[in-house]
Design a protein around this nucleic acid. Structure first.
Length: 518
RNA sequence: GACCCGGUAGCUCAAUCGGUAGAGCAACGGCCUUUUAAGCCGUAGGUCGUGGGUUCGAUUCCCACCCGGGUCACCA
């Protein structure tokens, strides 16, 4: 960074017009014309008296109303010669503007250089048009930001009371890449993502109310653990060492419980260096929370209340903007009495049609898996076979939110053995619509057992398993000081939000999903 | 990774059985002082994803590649 920046050469100096298409050229020309008229195209601020929705209410039954000032983006434009109708969009909705040459005089020439997409502030009295729409009769205008690039506005008409959009901006890839444009032209997309924020806020409020402490733990970690996944690796120059982006928050949050923070939670991004598809993004939002002295049964109650609050928040946020309800998702979550609880072993045994599926040998499991269409059964190990069978016979058939409890220990290396039956673990997962929403355990707090499990992982890693972890001596040291028993829960918030809103693609749950560069 | 579908104007799409492409909206010019997908008249706007091949000639046919979507596989 010691090089002196090169001063621009004459050939570098350009206003960019060479690459501009004709539409953008026209806007640049208007900008020049405005500048020539002494109009600033980029403001510093604006004192708005009302949001659009509040201004609309002021008129009541009257024909003429008070003066208002509103600010926002021009989202519709209908010029008629010596008058112009426009709509201004702001966070509360939209309001019609009426410009008249005989009111504005020479300012009308300025207004004629406005474009769809410009950010403006206008002032004037309210009135009702012949068709009954409350409208601002504009007397003062300020251009706050000239839009030099056309936004992909579609046109809207009202058919049977419902807006129908023409030539809409529908390309899913472009809407994700240019989320700013997607949001700018689609109020319903803003409402959708606002409801996601409402969900997160509700979860924070819920956990705060139960005495959980929100904390932040390292994203850059010298060792990765707490889940089984491939990590992103980076390098710290000053320490000259590799660092990993976390794949889970778990081990740091549990260290905090050792330290005496008995209820902690974190909402943050985890990173997994794996494929991207409809339900996977390399970075995603994870909620993890831990409660000392609670076991997994108590945590089920917490999860029921938590997702109920999340569902209510999303439903309320969407109802406020008249968005279609996803009642199938909300209602079960809001019902009192909690979710049904299904034991893993009897449920799967019933599905397979045997008294005890764990009593079957590998060959029998393989045959059962093959029978239901699992591919490549010859190469699958026992845990995978069990999991495949479970997915087919139980998981995929779960529609309403349901807890599946007491997983076999072969499938749950991170959970405590079940009291009274060491072949099972104290673990639950919450499923709905065939998808996993939460995963939770009575957490291991025996440092000797933990070391054994770490060492087994390290062995796999040495054998070339990229997803396996290492022995985390610092974490073991924390456990050796004495870790209270606790229940821990992980909930993928992108997935939860997808479930609540009926979203089919994780791209539509994340504002800026990871994408290949253009 | 396999298979299927797609990539044409700023947006949404059409057409070309091989002869360098059209519409609506957006844009520009004209008319228009209560419109709301405003209207009417006119104009302009495109390396038809990229590279190669076949051909007198390729957006069209062939091959490869890139990008996206879907299904499956993989992936806690």
């Amino acid at each position: 960074m010691s090089e002196t920046p090169k001063s621009p050469q004459p050939s570098d100096v350009t206003d960019g017009r060479d690459d501009l298409n004709f539409v953008m050229r026209a806007r640049r020309d208007k900008l020049d014309a405005l500048t020539a008229q002494g109009v600033s195209a980029y403001g510093y601020g604006y004192q708005r008296s009302h949001l659009s929705a509040d201004a609309l209410k002021l008129l009541g039954e009257a024909e003429e109303g008070p003066e208002v000032s509103v600010a926002g983006r021009l989202v519709a434009w209908r010029a008629h010669g010596k008058t112009i109708f426009a709509h201004l969009g702001d966070p509360a909705g939209r309001i019609q503007l009426y410009f008249r040459k005989d009111v504005l005089n020479e300012v009308f020439d300025v207004v004629e250089h406005f474009d769809l997409g410009d950010v403006v502030g206008v002032q004037g009295p309210l009135f009702r048009t012949r068709s009954g729409e409350v409208t601002v009769r504009v007397t003062k205008v300020e251009l706050l930001a000239k839009s030099l690039r056309p936004l992909p506005f579609g046109k809207e008409e009202i058919v049977d009371g419902k807006p129908v959009r023409h030539s809409a901006f529908t390309d899913g890839e472009m809407r994700s890449r240019q989320r700013y444009a997607d949001l700018a032209v689609h109020p319903e997309v803003r409402a959708h993502f606002a409801s996601r924020s409402a969900m997160t806020r509700a979860i924070r409020t819920f956990l705060d109310g139960r005495g959980f402490l929100e904390v932040e733990t390292p994203v850059l970690q010298p060792l990765y653990g707490g889940a089984i996944a491939k990590p992103f690796v980076t390098h710290h120059n000053a320490l000259d060492m590799p660092l990993f982006l976390r794949i889970a928050d778990e081990l740091y949050l549990k260290r905090l419980v050792v330290g005496g923070f008995e209820r902690v939670y974190e909402i943050g991004h985890d990173f997994r260096n794996e494929g991207i598809d409809r339900t996977h993004n390399p970075e995603f939002t994870m909620l993890e929370f831990y409660q000392a002295y609670a076991d997994y049964v108590e945590m089920m109650d917490v999860v029921e209340a938590l997702v109920g609050n999340a569902a209510l928040a999303v439903r309320t946020a969407l109802a406020a903007v008249d968005r279609p309800d996803n009642a199938a998702a909300f209602e079960p979550m809001l019902e009192a009495g909690g979710f049904p609880r299904v034991e893993w072993l009897p449920a799967l045994s019933r599905g397979v049609g045997v008294p005890d599926v764990l009593a079957l040998d590998d060959a029998a499991l393989r045959a059962a898996a093959k029978k239901v269409g699992v591919q490549g059964t010859d190469k699958l190990l026992r845990p995978k076979l069990l999991d495949e069978l479970f997915q087919f016979h139980v998981e995929s058939k779960i529609d309403r939110p349901t807890f599946v409890i007491d997983y076999p220990i072969e499938l749950s290396p991170l959970a405590k053995p079940k009291r009274g039956n060491p072949a099972l673990t104290e673990r639950f997962e919450l499923f709905a619509k065939g998808k996993e929403i939460a995963n939770a355990f009575s957490e291991l707090n025996d440092p000797i057992d933990q070391r054994r499990r770490f060492e087994a992982q390290a062995k796999l890693k040495a054998a070339g398993d990229e997803e396996a972890g290492s022995v985390d001596e610092d974490y073991l040291r924390a456990m050796e000081y004495g870790m209270p028993p606790m229940g821990g829960v992980g909930i993928g918030l992108d997935r939860l939000f997808m479930y609540l809103t009926g979203t089919q693609h994780i791209r539509d749950a994340i504002l800026f999903p990871t994408m290949r560069p253009e």
